[in-house]
Every structure is written in C-alpha cells, then in structure tokens.
Write a protein that binds this DNA or RNA. Sequence first.
DNA 1: AGAAAACTCAACCGAAAAGTTAAATATGCG
DNA 2: CGCATATTTAACTTTTCGGTTGAGTTTTCT
Lengths: 84, 84
Amino acid sequence: MLLEDDMAVTDVAYPFDVSLAAISKHLAILASSGLISQEKRGRVKWCKLEPDALRSASVWMQGFGQFEPVNLDVFEKFLVSELE
Amino acid sequence: MLLEDDMAVTDVAYPFDVSLAAISKHLAILASSGLISQEKRGRVKWCKLEPDALRSASVWMQGFGQFEPVNLDVFEKFLVSELE
DNA sequence: AGAAAACTCAACCGAAAAGTTAAATATGCG
DNA sequence: CGCATATTTAACTTTTCGGTTGAGTTTTCT
C-alpha cells in the first residue's frame, strides 16, 4: 500500500477488510491526536499525515532515561540534515 | 514523582491509586516488552528503566513520513553525541 | 428533482484489557 | 518459630476497544 499525500477516507479504507465506518472513526481519533489532519472539501474529507506529531514523541523518547536533557538544537540540526 | 534508578514494585505503586497487584501485573508486561528490567534480590524485585527499548521506536518515528529513508549512521552519531 | 457518492452517527456487541479482592508464596527479622 | 513485608496468583468483575449494521446528512451528478 502506498501512502499518498492526501487521501480520502474511502481511499484509506479501501485495502482494509473493515467497514468504512470503522475507518472513519479511527481516522477521527488519529486527527484528534494530531497524527493526521483532515480537511473537508465538498463531500470528501482529505486526510494527510502529520509527521511532526511523531517527531515530538521521538524527541521525548530521546530524552527519556537520560541524565542530561537532550540538546534540542542538535536534534533539530539532525532532522534538517535528514530531511533535505 | 521522581524516577529513581531502581525502584521496588511497592515504590512504583505508591503514588498510584490502584492496587499493588495491578501495578505488579503492569510491571511484568513492561519487563516482557523490555522497557524495564527486574531483578529480584531477597524479597524485593528491583525495577530499572531500559531506555534502549524506546530508541528503536524513536528511530522508526524518525523515518515515518519522510520521503528519503533515515540515515541510521547519522542518527546513531547523533545519539552517541547526546549520550556522552 | 432524484439518485449516487462520501461520510458520519447512534445503538449495539463481543473480546480483550485492566482493575479488584482474597489467598498463596517467599523472604527477612526479633 | 512466628510475624511482618514484598510480591504474585487466581478468580472474578468492570471498562474500554474495535468492530458491525442501518439510518441520516450533505454534496455531486445527470
């Protein structure tokens, strides 16, 4: 399965063997958690991944269990170097 | 609440408003997931955080949503520089 | 206008998760 | 030994989760 930039709820549901309503619910939860964003244009609701939400979790995990707090500047440089 | 290096099951349970048995079960699950380690000395079972278990999740999150896969060598260098 | 498409809502269901209490198992101590 | 401490086990109850179905809303298409 390929993750498109923007997918309708129906598109996301297509490969799964569950009802559309189930996927709709699930996506609403993801949206309320900030992991995806949803924008309704016409009758279709477009869903987009929001990787930043995971990034902050990742940063938190980096800091977890360390005595010295993570240097966020260094971390951001790392991210920038990875993303470009 | 302060996270000590080593905590007995009772210590972990103290601030929570749930039974000791519940915490004991929960800690067993964390241990089986590798998120903590438990060592029994005498009648007390000492629990210690294992941040490495979170690291692989963190790495996965870094890669999530990026077009270019994460360069793990660079990521490891980042981690080493943070940890020393 | 009327039908189809895209989604959501509400009510419901079963299974898994997470909690409780009481008893059991070790270990440490005076 | 006998009692207190630390934790686990067992049986059970409650809550949450993830799903279903069918009806309802809004938008698009002809």
